[in-house]
């Protein structure tokens, strides 16, 4: 693993057993998150983006789920590389919430309603860093101030239900960053928030990353949010990576028809319906993870598909510097 990588996922396979068969939610996914970098993983429901992040945190419920193959190489604070797919649950517990911080979509379900926010932030510091009660409290206070919570001294002794959604998400961020993780995994952290609050939280995350240099794995379905926070982007569709690249070239000149379609079907603020105008729409819907089409999984919905696309799956090939796409017709994607 390269020295500038924090996380290196190689050929990850995460499967779920259902009545109807084995669902390959994540089917051979490889990507890396560099130091000081925010990598966004984008996709719609069923793309496998959340299962990828849950796998990296080893939070896949087993059964029915299992990490069936691949490596999740993670560089800890001490510089040592471990394969999180292989280490014991006990060892994982000292990584999770400590060297890897986590933020989820709905802060209310991730915070414990019966403890004050000060106790919850302090708990990680006491458990992982062995701080005493008073030191943990002082550190929790400092974190609340850092994430921009007004009247932090008072808020420290409040319970999650006394706070708004935006404040709770700030508490989650304070908690996730309290132990100074080398990697922060944020799974749709602003999806449940209103746009004006989302703008505040994204601004905060950007600022904190500049300060701390933490690598961020940012899971989202929103390409607008990607443009705001990410340095590089991975686009997932039906359990596979279909395109990967630096944020600018991927959003400016997407080379996979799916990415191109996703961008085209989002109306932008300046767009009017006018007379007879229609939004671009991708026909059909995401295939079932149990019964995926052979060949390119996007081919049944793709306007550029040709017989060869259905016969064999294309490889993820380079289409530019730091940009690759899994499409045999990428040269025709305008």
């Amino acid at each position: 693993m390269d020295a500038d990588l924090t996380l290196d996922i190689r050929n990850l396979q995460t499967h779920f057993t259902a009545d109807s068969g084995v669902s390959k939610a994540v089917d051979g996914v490889s990507f890396a998150v560099r130091r000081n970098e925010t990598l966004a993983v984008v996709g719609e429901s069923g793309s496998g983006k959340s299962v990828t992040s849950l796998s990296a945190m080893r939070l896949i419920p087993t059964p029915p789920g299992i990490i069936a193959g691949g490596e999740i190489l993670f560089r800890g604070r001490d510089g040592q590389v471990r394969d999180l797919a292989r280490i014991s649950e006990r060892a994982m517990r000292s990584v999770r919430g400590n060297e890897i911080g986590m933020i989820f979509q709905e802060p209310m379900t991730s915070l414990n309603p019966v403890y004050t926010v000060g106790d919850q932030i302090g708990e990680a510091l006491r458990y992982h860093q062995g701080l005493d009660r008073w030191a943990a409290r002082a550190e929790a206070l400092a974190m609340l101030k850092k994430v921009g919570i007004p009247a932090a001294e008072r808020r420290l002794d409040e319970y999650p239900h006394q706070m708004s959604g935006g404040m709770r998400q700030r508490v989650m961020i304070a908690m996730a960053l309290a132990c100074r993780p080398t990697l922060l995994i944020a799974d749709e952290p602003t999806t449940a928030l209103d746009v004006t609050i989302q703008a505040q939280i994204l601004d905060l995350m950007r600022r904190l990353q500049e300060e701390t240099g933490t690598s961020i794995l940012f899971i989202t379905h929103n390409l607008g949010v990607v443009a705001e926070v990410a340095h590089r982007v991975v686009v997932m569709y039906a359990g596979r990576i279909v395109e990967e690249g630096d944020v600018r070239s991927l959003l400016k000149s997407p080379k996979h028809p799916y990415t191109r379609g996703l961008l085209a079907c989002m109306p932008h603020l300046g767009q009017r319906r006018g007379d007879g105008g229609r939004l671009y729409a991708i026909p059909g819907s995401v295939p079932s993870p149990v019964n995926r089409p052979a060949g390119c999984t996007f081919a049944p919905r793709c306007a550029l598909a040709e017989p060869a696309c259905l016969a064999a799956e294309p490889v993820l090939e380079p289409v530019g510097p730091d940009h690759s796409a899994r499409c045999r017709r990428w040269r025709d994607v305008q």
Partner: peptide
Amino acid sequence: SAAPDPDPDAPKSRMLLDGDV
């Protein structure tokens, strides 16, 4: 101004509101 725009060249002159509703 808070609505995120997927265009990386869109102006990011943000009018950030303080606080909550």
